[in-house]
Design a protein around this nucleic acid. Structure first.
Length: 495
RNA sequence: GCCCCAUUCGUCUAGUGGCCUAGGACGCAGCCCUCUCAAGGCUGAAACACGGGUUCGAGUCCCGUAUGGGGCACCA
């Protein structure tokens, strides 16, 4: 049996899109499931849209997600080169072969002439496209156009009769009527191939066994089938993957939505690098993406990539597009943070967002703080707001009204905090348990609720109304610092 | 305009003719736990787009309608 070879073939026109990443992921899962190879190929045949560093970023983001390619522009391979711009001679050679075998022809129409054809067709309520007027040019006519200085394109002589039937691994049996097809351009006048030509030639010579791509390509599938047949090459299996729609289900999740917000005012992240920067874990993102359009079985939502690889099967891929269920990602990320990440690793991961927020991170403190934040954050970045105060150079004191708890006023709060001081000072061991016991007793003595005592201390000591648990926090802060902050809170209340 | 694809709770999904009184998950609501916030536990509301067939029997098969998505470039 042939080695399964799949590929991800992005155009270097920008940063890696979350939808493209999902397609790449499915393609990779398919290859790995069969113990095959996953290839990265760069489709840079549109010189106008080329974006600098796009390739480097694709590779970086795929690696971050754990999607490692076996062949590609950075690591090579025996089927290279992996940039289409470096394979021009191959496309030109085979385009010419098609012309010589009467399966393609030179067309000399100018962009203006093509635009005019389109307008006329639209007026006649015909689909836009080319009418094939240069299909049967005589040698003299061609010579005349050449003499005018026109550079031709090579167009495919599309078969117009009958139907083209294909079995798609995801979509099932699909049938197209050939009379709706056009003589598409294969080789542009600048000598670069179009997608159609390059895709067939590359997938043939790179020995791709399963062509995976988004279902936006489904309408051009008959073109490709006819091309394969014209070449007389063996046709690989095709799998048209569903695409991600906007969370409201309207329109595909598009790069144009970068920086825009959904109805509830939340930012819709569409670039993989944005997810990285927002503090999502790659394994959580992969788990999340794998659950859209495919399902693990066993009613399990959380699983490792290895488990997904074992079970992944294209027949289980849902052919329908899906609204992007972004709210599920926070839940999954939270699970990975609290159930699948060790304290040591989490501490390591937390350092970056903290530092990015301009804080000076003490590793020892961080390691103590990490278990306290683990169940309280859904994204790595949340640590800054919740526990950033541990790393402030100078303490940011709370506002007066924040210290005062429910059903209390400044006077009673002062009394309370002043009562805590001698007792905390007298504590022999500065531990959470000791503090908890003692302050609990104090609450009873003062006829206050635990929440009132603990809450006032929390705000005094952290400067925040929402924070890590009070006594755990005080234990980490240390006795001197904690008492200092309580005294400061009393001053604030008095002032 | 023409062509292709899809359609189960708000959303992601299970379901491949009888096991479906339609299952799970997110989100939402309520309760419990609780020093804040989380986490955790329990409970609840919530769907087969519509209309015709086929069949003893249809969420599951067929046809139509509606809705949604996509395509129709010297872009990929």
């Amino acid at each position: 049996m042939k080695t399964v070879r799949t590929r991800f073939a992005p155009s270097p026109t920008g940063s890696l899109h979350i939808g493209s990443a999902r397609s790449a992921l499915f393609s990779w899962l398919l290859a790995k499931h069969h113990g095959g190879k996953f290839i990265l190929r760069i489709e840079d045949t549109d010189q106008k849209r080329y974006v600098e560093n796009a390739v480097e970023e694709f590779i970086e983001m795929l690696a971050w997600l754990g999607i490692h390619h076996d062949e590609g522009p950075d690591i090579g391979g025996e089927f290279g080169p992996y940039y289409q711009s470096q394979r021009l001679e191959l496309y030109q050679k085979w385009a010419k072969w098609l012309v010589e075998n009467d399966k393609a022809y030179y067309a000399y129409d100018t962009p203006e002439e093509l635009e005019q054809i389109n307008q006329e067709r639209r007026a006649k309520k015909l689909p836009p496209g080319y009418d094939g007027r240069h299909r049967d040019l005589t040698d003299e006519q061609r010579a005349a156009y050449e003499a005018e200085g026109r550079t031709p394109v090579i167009r495919f002589k599309m078969r117009r009769e009958g139907t083209t039937q294909v079995h798609d691994l995801v979509q099932g049996d699909v049938e197209f009527r050939n009379n709706t097809l056009q003589d598409i351009v294969l080789l542009k006048s600048d000598g670069f191939p179009t997608y159609h030509l390059a895709h067939v030639i590359d997938d043939h010579f790179m020995e791709i066994t399963h062509v995976t791509r988004s279902n936006e390509w489904l309408p051009s599938l008959p073109i490709h089938i006819n091309l394969w047949n014209a070449f007389g090459w063996e046709i690989p299996a095709y799998a048209h993957l569903p695409v991600l729609l906007n969370p409201n289900g309207k329109g595909k999740l598009s790069k144009r939505h970068v920086g825009t917000k959904n109805e509830s005012g939340e930012q819709i992240l569409v670039l993989v690098k944005e997810y990285k920067e927002a503090g999502y874990l790659p394994e959580a993102l992969v788990n999340f993406l794998t659950n859209i359009g495919w399902n693990f079985g066993d009613e399990r939502e959380i699983f490792t990539v290895q488990e997904a690889i074992q079970r992944f099967d294209l027949s289980g891929v849902n052919p329908a597009n899906s609204a992007y269920p972004i709210e599920k990602l926070d839940w999954i990320n939270g699970i990975y943070i609290r159930e699948h990440t060790s304290i040591e690793r989490l501490a390591e991961l937390l350092r970056e967002p903290l530092q990015k927020a301009g804080l000076k991170v003490d590793d020892e403190v961080l390691l103590k703080v990490t278990p306290l934040v683990q169940t309280r954050i859904t994204k790595l970045n949340d640590v800054v707001e919740l526990a950033g105060f541990f790393f402030h150079e100078t303490f940011i004191p709370p506002a007066k009204e924040d210290i005062i708890q429910k059903k209390m006023d400044a006077a009673s709060t002062i009394k309370l905090l002043e009562a805590t001081l001698p007792r905390l000072e007298a504590l022999e061991t500065w531990t959470t348990d000791a503090m908890l016991q003692d302050m609990d007793a104090l609450a009873t003595e003062l006829a206050l609720k635990r929440g009132q005592v603990f809450g006032a201390l929390r705000v005094a000591v952290t400067g925040q109304k929402i924070s890590t648990p009070t006594f755990e926090t005080m234990e980490i802060l240390g006795k001197d610092e904690s008492l200092k902050r309580i005294r400061l809170a009393i001053d604030i209340l008095k002032g």
